[in-house]
Design a protein around this nucleic acid. Sequence first.
DNA 1: TGTTACATTAGATATATTCCAAATAGTTCA
DNA 2: TGAACTATTTGGAATATATCTAATGTAACA
Lengths: 141, 141
Amino acid sequence: MDVAAIKRSFEGSGLRCTPQRYAVMAFLMDCNRHPTAADIFEAVNRVDPRSSRATTYNNLRDLVEAGLVREVAVEGRAARFDAKGMRHHHFICDRCGNVEDVEWYDVPRPRSRALGKRVLRECELIFRGLCTKCAGRTLSR
Amino acid sequence: MDVAAIKRSFEGSGLRCTPQRYAVMAFLMDCNRHPTAADIFEAVNRVDPRSSRATTYNNLRDLVEAGLVREVAVEGRAARFDAKGMRHHHFICDRCGNVEDVEWYDVPRPRSRALGKRVLRECELIFRGLCTKCAGRTLSR
DNA sequence: TGTTACATTAGATATATTCCAAATAGTTCA
DNA sequence: TGAACTATTTGGAATATATCTAATGTAACA
C-alpha cells in the first residue's frame, strides 16, 4: 500500500491528507470486499479510536466526489464503497446483498440520439443473481 | 390501462388483487417517471385515503419479488420504482438523482469463467451524468 | 361455515445518513 | 512569527427511509 500515492491523489483533488481521511482511503485500498460506511467507521477505529461517524461520512463523500472512491447503492441496504483501482463491474447478490467484483470488459455506449442533451459521465454494468455462497445454500434445500 | 391485464399478472404470481395492490400497480403503469415509495403512497391516497404506508411498502416488495416491478437504488436517496413494461436501461442524474429511461439495447454478458458458480438473473446497465435539466443549469452559471 | 392463509393498519422501531455549531488543526503571507 | 483564513473534525441531534408488530379484516375453500 503506497502512502505517497495516496497523498498525491489527495493533493490532485485539492483534499488535505488528514489522518482520518487517509485511514479511510488506506482501508478501502487493501480491502477486497465492499464495506459499508459502518464497516469502514468500525475498521478505522478498531486500533485506536480516532474518527467520528460524521467524519467518516464526510470523507467518504469527499472521496466519491473526487472520483477516488465508488459508491454502490444496494436496494434496502446500506451503500457499499470501494476504491477505484482496476476497472470492474459489480455483481449484487439478491439474497445477501453482498457486492462482488466482476472482471472488466467494454460496454457499448448508447446511440447519442438516445441520450439527447444529457451529459454522460460513466456507464456501469450491474449483474444480479445469487453469489456462490447463496447459490450453494439454495440448492441444498 | 388494462384492468384485466393487471389482474392476470397478479394471479400468475399468486398475488391477490386487492384495491391497494392494484392501485400501486396501476399508478406505476401509467407513470412515466420513476417515483419513490413516498410518491406512490401519496399518489394512491390522493383521491381517497385508503392505503397505509406499511401496505404500500409491502405491496412494492411483493411486486418486485414477483418480477412485475423494478426497484432502482440511488445513492443517498430513496429507492425508485417502475413497472417492468418495455425493457430499458436507466440514466441517473448525479445532481438531482432523477432516474430516466434509456432506449434498450443488448448488453454482452460476461464470460462464464468470470462468474464462476454465481447464478446470473439479470444484467442492468446504468448511465450516470447530468440530466437535460441539470446540464442546462450547469452551463448557464 | 369454519378454518386457514393472505392482507391491511397505525404506530412504534430500526437503520442509515446528514446537519449543526463549536472546537481544532493546517496554511498563507505580511 | 503570528494573525487571519480555511479546511476539518467532533458528538449529538435531527432527518429520512424502511421495516416490524400485533390486532384486525378479508377472501378461499374443504
